[in-house]
Nucleic acid binder design. Structure first.
Lengths: 193, 193
DNA sequence: CGGAATCTTGAAAGTGTTCAAATCAAGTGG
DNA sequence: CCACTTGATTTGAACACTTTCAAGATTCCG
């Protein structure tokens, strides 16, 4: 249940057995069935979730009920409404499970304790956010600078595992397109070969 | 020359006199004239720049020479090509001055030393990146979910100081639009009042 | 003053969306 | 295991919005 978690962390910082024990004591395991909510817009986000298994998404809900996917998260990733988590303001994002999931939750209290008690935790979090930031910047860059086809191909090249496990209309939503448009983009790409 | 820097940091963490002295010893002041480059695409980014005074932008250059602005930075902000800085790969972004600037440069070596020697530095960096990440996520959210007018109004509401100091065609570029389209959006907004 | 850059405006072309319908796939209950 | 319902993807045509290209107006700065 904690394998992916410790493996993932140790790719970036090294943990003693003791560190691991401390960390473990702060985590709350949680299982989530497909389509279940982890967080609903308007609630305060009480945790950061680490994905041991499964796929989730975070998204906003527009005026006409249309969903705009902000992020996918698969094994080894973190997901949360960070702003709500840090400020205790109501969440603007909704998070739910695309597949059955096993999660490890880090509560606000746990997060704060760990930042103080465990320097490697702070370092890990810093590295984690840094790479999330860089990835987000790349995504934004491709949105404002690349034509649709290249954007889609960039996405599939970068996240083949997500493409396989997530329905297309959600990828369209993630890209800010209608499902119809994405379908046409894909057709164009495949017929050209 | 260091006022803005220390003020900005102390909004998030507290610094002893000694901390300040250590920090100061690692910073390299640099002045930049309007239109001068701080970083050119293809070079390795050797530093993170803190803006004491002035305005800069980072951007990519498309195939036809068209610029896509990724970020603006004014007093109190950091700017860099983080990916290049951390990996020593060639930069994909170009950074230049929109106004005459006074900067404080943090070199890679300084950055690494400070992360080890000065826990508050790591904390500050973490908080800094965290808020940059949240801001970027909001920006992306508005790109994929809001109509143009609201996006522009959101931008002006959030960054009135930038709007005043930066030419409109750059704001258009930042929003992923042509200057003509932004001009029309603005007209629509003003004529409606 | 004069040239360069910026901003605005117009019309045509291009691209994505919307709406509607058909096809295809998956899951459920009998 | 099949029939049925529901969800997902594809396709077409009309429509809306953004870009492109070209030109005119405005502002800035040497």
């Amino acid at each position: 249940m904690y394998e992916v978690f410790f493996e993932t962390i140790q790719k970036q910082v090294s943990l003693t057995k003791k560190d691991q024990a401390i960390l473990k004591s702060y985590l709350t395991p949680k299982k989530l069935r497909k389509k279940q909510y982890l967080l609903q817009e308007g609630d305060v986000c009480k945790f950061v979730a680490f994905v041991e298994k499964g796929v989730l998404r975070s998204y906003t809900i527009g005026e006409k009920g249309n969903e705009h996917i902000i992020q996918f998260a698969i094994e080894g990733w973190l997901i949360s409404d960070l702003y709500s988590f840090l400020t205790a303001e109501p969440a603007t994002y909704t998070i739910d499970a695309i597949e059955d999931c096993e999660l490890l939750l880090i509560s606000k209290g746990a997060h704060e304790d760990l930042l103080h008690k465990l320097p490697v935790y702070e370092t890990w979090i810093r590295l984690q956010i840094t790479s999330a930031y860089i990835a987000l910047q790349k995504r934004l860059t491709s949105v404002i600078s690349l034509p649709l086809e290249e954007r889609y191909q960039g996405f599939t090249a970068l996240y083949p595992h997500i493409v396989q496990r997530v329905p297309q209309h959600m990828i369209a939503s993630y890209m800010g397109l209608t499902p119809e448009t994405l379908s046409r983009v894909r057709k164009k790409i495949t017929t050209r070969r």
